[in-house]
Amino acid sequence: MSLLRIEHLSKSFGGVKAVNDVSFALAPGEMRAMIGPNGAGKTTLFNMVDGQLRPDAGNILLNGKSILGLPPRAIFRADVGRTFQIAATFASMTVLQNVQTALASCARQTTSLFRRADDLHRAEAMDLLRQVNMADQAERPCGVLAYGDVKRVELALALANKPKLLLMDEPTAGMAPAERIALITQTRDIAKHRNVGVLFTEHSMDVVFGFADRIMVLSRGRLIAEGDAEEIRNNPKVRQIYFGAGAEPVR
């Protein structure tokens, strides 16, 4: 059974079909990239999967169960982790506190008034930070981190719930090329190691074609192609719409 199953998903904003009848499925452990020009509907699709937006039509199934209409926090509890296009962490906390807070939330301890937050889940949090190479910066405030590091912390937050599915909206945007490859490599390793399905959007084609198991191409809300890197590279429709007519295949 597929981990995530999208069935005929549609969403309009004021008459414009942002996502138009999109269907696909994602298997556990699979890295799947979603590409397309700006305004193709990638973020809208993400926001529907993680519960921020309600689709006009269609269904979203996680492990065979519909998660339609659930709020983001419930979808998180259904083992879906998410990172945002503009990296989002808690600026007034240290790196470690960020992850501890996420872990406390997973353990449903956020109603606890009298325990000390700094003492909870320390080891586990450090473990997660080691996985994203942020352990050495654990005590720094998130507000002063370099953007690339914020993205790593965000990844650690998204992993706190041991998700089965990771949704990553442009995980490497705003990072230096070397950093990009490092981050996405880490992500792939974690995905393979934990058998996590990853759905991500990306503008950097070396990341997409180098790391995705499968690639989907969205244009004007429609899914116009799906396949592995080779198939997409050679798909004339993609070259026509996405890369522009007569463009050289991407290497």
């Binding site: 989002a88 808690f90 996420a102």
Partner: peptide, 9 residues
């Protein structure tokens, strides 16, 4: 947004 995405109501 982030708070909701880590399960905080």
């Amino acid at each position: 947004l982030r708070a909701e995405a880590i399960g905080i109501d």
